[in-house]
């Protein structure tokens, strides 16, 4: 099997990794870079627990090959906090009770971050639609939606977007 040397940016840091063809982005992030916030739920593009941002857009990292990421910019949940300050979405999910077992949370946060980046003031329907690809078996989603609404409100009031 051939190995490929990949150069990419992960959470703002330049990284170089050597991977086999069949290693997914999810596995490379977890196993080569120890970013275990990226969760392996279904490995089939259904559950969204492995969602990360690739060049600004959310992807299921289980459905992307690491070799496809040459030159890419990846953001994982570990890259959301800046200067020891949580992203408003992280604070809001904690405050609104949008986290229970926590397994889906990193993926939910990445989908929600991408949503607020493309639409800073989404309606409830838009929030729910953006989360179609993130399964949560604990919260019933209501508190997650409320958390995202709260984060959007904080950003609108001049907090960090």
């Amino acid at each position: 099997m051939t190995f490929h040397q990949i150069n990419l940016t992960v959470n703002g840091e330049a990284e170089q990794v050597v991977v086999a063809s069949n290693v997914t982005l999810m596995r490379m992030l977890r196993e080569n870079l120890a970013l275990t916030g990226v969760k392996n739920g279904c490995s089939a593009g259904e559950c969204g627990a492995c969602t990360v941002l690739m060049n600004g857009e959310p992807v299921n990292s289980c459905m992307v090959l690491a070799v496809e990421c040459e030159g890419a910019e990846i953001i994982t949940v570990e890259g959301l906090a800046k200067d020891h300050q949580l992203d408003p979405l992280q604070s809001a999910l904690i405050n609104e009770g949008g986290v229970q077992c926590g397994f889906c949370t990193p993926g939910v946060l990445m989908s929600a971050r991408a949503l607020l980046n493309r639409n800073p003031q989404p309606g409830e329907d838009q929030i729910r639609e953006a989360l179609v690809g993130n399964l949560c078996r604990c919260t019933g989603y209501t508190r997650i939606v409320e958390g995202i609404q709260a984060a959007a409100a904080i950003s609108a009031a001049g907090g960090r977007p």
């Binding site: 051939t2 069949n22 997914t24 490995s43 089939a44 070799v67």
Partner: peptide, 14 residues
């Protein structure tokens, strides 16, 4: 099904 995150082996060609 899908118990393992690893894909079977193959060569990636671009």
């Amino acid at each position: 099904r899908n118990t393992h995150p690893t894909l079977p082996e193959f060569e990636y060609i671009r």
